[in-house]
Every structure is written in structure tokens, then in C-alpha cells.
Amino acid sequence: MLQTSNYSLVLSLQFLLLSYDLFVNSFSELLRMAPVIQLVLFIIQDIAILFNIIIIFLMFFNTFVFQAGLVNLLFHKFKGTIILTAVYFALSISLHVWVMNLRWKNSNCFVWTDGLQTLFVFQRLAAVLYCYFYKRTAVRLGDPRFYQDSLWLRMEFMQVRR
């Protein structure tokens, strides 16, 4: 069974990483006095996303549903989060690589092209959706029903099998 204190700790860590992600997405364009600053911010951001992915999977592994072998049920319930997080991670890395590549020599020049602008919009939109889905999943995993056998779980399992 998930301990309340442990869950609070994990949840706060997740929110910390999420808020860092939001912060970098918002203000990284402002903080480009030197290319290195942006580089470090981006690297930490990507690591934060990776950490969040690891944490959410560890939380999955900790559920009774997973330990009972009902991985499919978990995936079915949270596939939106899993897919979106993966997509967002890929978009982030590609945008970061592209931007850093363009700005490495001169961080204060105008580098925008239509392609970059498009990628930028998609990455930022994915960030918002990721934030929403991830937050929702993290909060939902606090539901004690995921950590014990119950009628609800059996019914869910039946639904998924059908």
C-alpha cells in the first residue's frame, strides 16, 4: 500500500519538475544572453522530463494492478499520458537541438524559419498537454484503488478484456 508521506514526496517532486519545465518553456527565449545558459537550461529540462517519465513508471510498477500482471489495464488507462510524454520528449529534444544549433555562434540573431516556428508551436502545445495529462496521472495514481484488490479492479479488467 502506498504511504501518504511517500506519495506526498513523490508528488511534490513531480510538480517541481513540471514547474521547472513550464518555467524553461516560458522564459528560455528571454534567457539567451549566452548560448551556454540556454544549453544548460535545455539539458536540465530534458533530464527533468526523463526523470518524470521514470518516476511515473516507477509509480506504475508500485501499483497493485501492475504487480497483479494487469499491465494492459494500466496502459489502457494511461496510454494518453505515456504517448504524449514520449512525443513531448522527442519534440523537446529536437527543438532544443535545432535552436542550439542555430544560435550557438550568435545567440542574439534572428534564426526563425517557418519550419522552426512550426516545431516551436507544436512543442509548446505538447508541453501544455503533457503538463495537463501528467499532472492528472500523478494525481490519479494517489487513488487507493490502484493499490489493492477490489471489485472495481475486477470490473475494469473485465471491461478491458472485452
Binding site: L22, F23, N25, S26, F27, E29, L30, R124, A127, V128, C131, Y132, K135
Partner: peptide, 17 residues
């Protein structure tokens, strides 16, 4: 322009979520 654009994104993201 740019600070406001950043702030707008931050608030929009929060509000949308």
C-alpha cells in the same frame, strides 16, 4: 515584446491546464 510573450505563454499554459 518578448517578456510579455513569455509571460503570456506561462499564464496561458496555466489557464489552459
Amino acid at each position: 515584446a518578448y517578456p510579455f510573450q513569455s509571460l503570456l505563454y506561462l499564464l496561458l499554459a496555466l489557464s489552459t491546464v
